[in-house]
Design a protein around this nucleic acid. Structure first.
Lengths: 207, 207
DNA sequence: GTCTATACAGAGATAGAC
DNA sequence: GTCTATCTCTGTATAGAC
């Protein structure tokens, strides 16, 4: 049966279904046929809209990163919160939550999804670095931060935060996380060149 | 034509050929049939030795990481060199060189090899962390380093060094590298809690 | 234990008709 | 825009030779 739809509608349908499947079954475990069955289209239609399964992945990741960046942006502009806390919260909030469901995020990283992870890291760094550059510049101007390589430091912090909050690259036990988070915060402080302990109230959340 | 070889010999043959192909053509672009043609065996033989193409990849990466760790170990035990320099050199030397050929390493990262990269990172961290833990403990005992989360800090340094020296995750221009390396060194110093400038002679190499 | 040969299911991707 | 048919590749599973 042939049902014709307007291009953008069809495209969004494919993206929605694919995202749901990638996130629940994993990227590699999801076949193009799985997607076809649910969207109820033929293979040729799929490849009319996307050149490859990977292109679908890239589009989805762009959406996910954009959603995270929007949350981070909101947090960073609330000047009533101390700067260093805003930065930390922005990094945490940027992590994909998928409508608040933690279970789905866990699924995302349980499975073997090297491609998804790598593409996500790359895209996220590109999108988030400029946001944090502004925030760090604010801290430098206010004499809160003291550092010589802001751009490199931001990239490092984002990368480490990603490994910590989003990534399955280290197979840590739940019990190890408090130490990992405290270590991350301590090193973030040192790299930014803040007076030590500036983040103390934050640290107590993980004590 | 049937040539019988002792198991370990055949296994090594497959690994050698696969490594060459993965590195020159990329993991995804290399088919099992490519390997078969060169080793001159049947498909059944390949799957007699390995359960999957990915299992071959894991074996190769284990070898590569082991070679890097051996180089790092050598460097770390030469007590005539200042500790912080040894650590920096070990991190650089650990990076896969494949018999000294930089071209091949470039190939390795040019292609789309998420699985190879991720598995490498994981394996490398597992192997290298204990080595650096010893070195950092040496520094702490000598009152050179001052840090509260040695393990987390080592993981961070290795991860960042990997991103810098081995990884194609950031698409940096050649001209950006000096700043990236200097930034990395500065942050490494800060995380380890050395007196600033301890690495100054090292930094001049990239000035 | 080691190897060949081959057939086959299911994956991603393409070509061309409508 | 959509479809069907077809291609290549991975990986499984044979049956059997030495």
């Amino acid at each position: 049966m042939k049902t014709v739809k307007e291009g953008e509608v069809r495209r969004q349908e494919i993206l929605m279904v694919a995202r749901e499947l990638f996130v629940t079954k994993g990227y590699e475990q999801t076949t193009v046929n799985d997607i076809l069955k649910i969207v109820d289209i033929a293979k040729g239609t799929f490849y009319y809209y996307f050149n490859s399964k990977e292109e679908v992945l890239a589009a989805i990741i762009l959406d996910i990163v954009e959603e995270g960046a929007k949350r981070a942006e909101q947090i960073l502009k609330d000047k009533s919160v101390p700067l260093i806390n805003r930065i930390m919260m922005a990094i945490m909030a940027q992590s994909p939550e998928f409508e608040g469901s933690e279970e789905i995020r866990d699924e995302m990283h349980k499975v073997d999804n090297a491609k998804l992870e790598q593409l996500y890291t790359r895209t996220m760094l590109k999108r988030m670095t400029p946001l944090l550059e502004v925030a760090v510049a604010e801290g430098v101007a206010a004499d809160l931060f003291h550092l010589d390589y802001p751009r490199e430091t931001i990239e490092s912090i984002l990368l480490l935060g990603h490994m910590l909050f989003d990534c399955n690259i280290m197979d840590w036990e739940m019990t190890e996380y408090p130490a990992k988070i405290k270590g991350f915060l301590a090193n973030m402080e040192r790299m930014l060149g803040t007076r030590a302990g500036e983040l103390k109230d934050f640290l107590q959340m993980f004590a």
